[in-house]
Amino acid sequence: MTTPGFIRDLRADIGHRLLFLPGVSAVVFDEEGRVLLGRRADDGGWSIIGGIPEPGEQPADAAVREVHEETAVHCVAERVVLVETLPPTRYPNGDECQFVDITLRCRAVGGTARVNDEESLEVAWFARDALPPLRQFALTRIERAAEEGPAWFAPAAFAPAPGTVR
Rank of each mutant, 00 (worst) to 15 (best):
E148Q: 14
Q98A: 04
P88K: 07
F99K: 02
Q98I: 05
A130M: 01
V76R: 14
L134D: 05
D95T: 10
V28N: 08
I48Y: 09
R114K: 15
R17V: 11
W46N: 07
R40G: 02
R11T: 05
L37R: 08
F99E: 10
P92E: 13
S47A: 14
R141G: 00
A60E: 15
Q136R: 10
W152P: 00
V100T: 14
G110E: 12
L134N: 02
A12V: 01
R11Y: 02
E122T: 03
S120F: 07
V73L: 08
W152E: 02
A145W: 03
I48V: 15
L36F: 09
L18N: 00
R40K: 11
R107A: 14
I14C: 06
A151V: 00
G44I: 08
V100M: 11
E96F: 02
S120A: 15
V67G: 09
V73N: 07
G44R: 10
Q58L: 13
D43L: 04
A145Y: 01
Q98S: 03
Q136T: 12
I102E: 14
A108S: 14
G94P: 05
H74Y: 13
E147L: 12
E119V: 05
P87Q: 08
E69V: 12
A72D: 15
E78R: 10
A26L: 04
L139R: 06
S120D: 11
P87C: 04
G51F: 08
V73I: 15
R107V: 04
E54N: 14
D13N: 05
L121C: 03
A124M: 02
A26K: 03
R128C: 08
